[in-house]
C-alpha cells in the first residue's frame, strides 16, 4: 500500500458516499445516470467475487464490502425509492454498446483464461467506460448540480491517483499490470474535459454548465 493508492481509495469512497448522500438528502436522483450506477454495481460485483475466497487484509475486505453495499443502495434509491425523480429521458446511453464490446475484449485480452480472471478483466474494462452515460447525460442536460460535479471530481481523481500508484509500484516494487494501467488511463482521459470545466467553473463558485 502507498499513499497514492490510499488517497485514491479514500477519494473513491468519498465519491460514492457523496452520491448516496446527495440522493438521500435531496430525496431526488435528478441529474444522476442510473445506467452508470448499474454498470458500477456490475464492476464491483465482478471484481470482488473473491471477497470471501481470498483474504488480503481487513482494509481490502472492508472496502470491497462497502463499495458493493453502497453501489446496491444507490441503485435501489434510483430505481425504486426515488424512481419518480429518475430522469430517464436524459439517461438514454445504450449500456449494451459498452457491455458487449467490453465483454468480448475481456475474453480476447486477459492475463489468464480462467473465469475469475476474465470477470476481473471485464470489470477493469467496464469501469473505464462506466462513467460515459453520466457524462453523456450531463452533456444532454447541459449542466450538473454542484454536488454531482463534486462526486465526479472525486471519482475521476481516484483513478488518476491510481495511475500515480502504478508508477510508484513500477519503480519501487517492479510491479505493473498493463491491463489495469491502460484501462485506468482511458478512464482518466474520459474525465479530462470534465476536470477542465470543474476547475475553471466549480472551483470559482459557478455552476457546472456545458457551453450550449
Amino acid at each position: 500500500m502507498n499513499i497514492f493508492r490510499l488517497v485514491g481509495d479514500l477519494s473513491h469512497l468519498l465519491a460514492i458516499l457523496l452520491l448516496l448522500w446527495k440522493i438521500w438528502k435531496t430525496r431526488s436522483c435528478a441529474g444522476v445516470s442510473g445506467k452508470s450506477q448499474i454498470m458500477f454495481g456490475l464492476v464491483y460485483i465482478t471484481r470482488y467475487l473473491d471477497l470471501f475466497t481470498n483474504f488480503i487484509s481487513i482494509y481490502n475486505t472492508t472496502m470491497k464490502a462497502i463499495f458493493i453495499a453502497v453501489a446496491i443502495a444507490t441503485i435501489y434509491l434510483i430505481y425504486f425509492k426515488f424512481k419518480a425523480t429518475y430522469d430517464s429521458n436524459h439517461d438514454t446511453f445504450r449500456m449494451e454498446f459498452l457491455i458487449v464490446p467490453v465483454g468480448g475484449l475481456a475474453f480476447l485480452v486477459n492475463h489468464d483464461f480462467t473465469a475469475l480472471e476474465i470477470l476481473w478483466t471485464f470489470s477493469i474494462y467496464l469501469e473505464s467506460v462506466a462513467i460515459l452515460p453520466q457524462l453523456f447525460m450531463i452533456s444532454k442536460t447541459g449542466e450538473a448540480e454542484t454536488i454531482t460535479s463534486h462526486y465526479l471530481f472525486a471519482l475521476g481523481s481516484y483513478r488518476a491517483l491510481y495511475i500515480v500508484n502504478w508508477v510508484y509500484r513500477y519503480y519501487f516494487e517492479g510491479f505493473f499490470d498493463l491491463i489495469a494501467i491502460v484501462a485506468g488511463c482511458v478512464q482518466t482521459i474520459l474525465y479530462c474535459d470534465f476536470f477542465y470545466l470543474y476547475v475553471t467553473k466549480v472551483m470559482h463558485g459557478k455552476k457546472l454548465s456545458l457551453p450550449a
Binding site: R5, H12, N54, I56, F67, D112, W120
Partner: peptide
C-alpha cells in the same frame, strides 16, 4: 502467476 499477490488492489 501468484493470483492473490497481484490482486491486492481494489
Amino acid at each position: 502467476k501468484d493470483y492473490i499477490k497481484d490482486k491486492d488492489e481494489l
